[in-house]
Design a protein around this nucleic acid. Structure first.
Lengths: 215, 215
DNA sequence: GTTGTTATCTAACGATTGTTATTTTATCTC
DNA sequence: GAGATAAAATAACAATCGTTAGATAACAAC
């Protein structure tokens, strides 16, 4: 009988993930992962046919981690704002995973870079339709306009050169939400929803008055 | 006497720039540039101490190219919208240079990634103050809110997975401009400028009615 | 304790990188 | 045309990468 397995497949993925978190996906090399494991490169190639295979697993794990952030945001009191805030938190806390999921060409990341985004949009749409009685199209527009700003902030964060403070970003997010909220009612030619605009307004302003919340 | 110089320093930078445009800055390797030149790696190291030195020159050239785009945008009829449109054009036409200038950590690109942004903001501020009689702070807020959306679009473009059509992006830009324009007058607690809001409105709506323009 | 199985380790291969020593070669001076 | 000079080409160096063949060693069955 052979000796018992020292490095489970999952442990190898975990080690590779840790390397990716600290130094980026390009630093996920055979010897680097082996050092993280405290072993040699051998076990890696007994479980994985190639490094690309292992990196694909890392992508999957990164996507799972991202998913937990988004879901926590949706569970909060203002779902579409919550998703945005959690998206920013993900960028702050996992900048290298953010780069992996959102700043690569779709052919360079298994599953497509924007798959995670579409997933967020689907969840946000459902929440907005339920809570504020929006129709799907309006919800998508809402999500889009806020997300466009959030995406910018997040990308600035991971490029390590964000010219805005956390307070500024939070203020702008609220501003934009309010602007969108008003614009979609008052500017002709834009989609006219029959949703509960006043409820959003109350939520947003109430939230702003509260100061910070949600950890 | 030696034979005449076959590869001027500038030609080498040009070759490296072409490689960076086609395959990204990471593909700027000694042998790759030599092949682009139609020569060997020799001349590269007679003019440059290292490949990093050459790459720094490429960064400089990329920044110059970006500058011409922004300046063309500012020369148009609606400066802050023009800069945004030219920024998008730069992302579309020079995606690899965009990645180089805007999607790298400041320590990985000589001069800092966001230097080009600050340059744009300075130019936009001057234009907005002159044309619409804004004060500097309001102009910066204006630029910021529009640029946050533009930055998202541009980054989506270079990740090759932009879920929006060109028409959608143009429409959203105008929407956002209008929203900002309204919001800065009507929402309490936001900066109150004394600028010519109606002029912006006219420009934006007139432009939208015109359909497309500016090549 | 011996033995077989096989996970792991070691060491190496081939490819690719930046960089450099050496050779080649083109051009000017004489 | 011969020789000197230096740019360019060639080829090699060391380092690093993915990958793999062979050696090592741990564990269960007996």
């Amino acid at each position: 009988m052979p000796p018992r397995i020292r490095f489970q497949k999952e442990e190898i993925v975990e080690a590779a993930l840790n390397v990716a978190r600290r130094k980026g996906i390009d630093a996920v090399k055979a010897r680097e992962v082996a050092a993280e494991l405290g072993g040699s490169v051998g076990p890696i190639f007994t479980w994985f046919g190639s490094m690309d295979e292992l990196k694909a697993e890392v992508c999957g794990r990164a996507r799972e981690i991202y998913r937990t952030y988004v879901e926590r945001g949706l569970a909060g009191p203002i779902p579409f704002l919550g998703v945005g805030q959690q998206y920013l938190r993900f960028a702050r806390e996992e900048p290298e995973l953010y780069r992996l999921l959102f700043l690569r060409r779709p052919d360079q990341v298994s599953g497509g870079a924007m798959e995670a985004l579409r997933f967020s949009q689907d969840l946000a749409r459902e929440s907005l339709m339920r809570i504020y009685r929006m129709d799907g199209k309006t919800a998508d527009c809402y999500f889009r306009d806020l997300w466009l700003v959030v995406f910018s902030f997040a990308t600035l964060i991971v490029t390590d050169d964000c010219p805005y403070t956390e307070e500024e970003m939070s203020a702008v997010l609220t501003e934009v939400s309010l602007s969108v909220c008003k614009a979609y009612k008052e500017i002709p030619g834009l989609p006219e929803g029959s949703y509960d605009r006043d409820a959003i307004f109350r939520d947003l302003v109430g939230r702003q008055a509260d100061g910070k919340s949600e950890g």
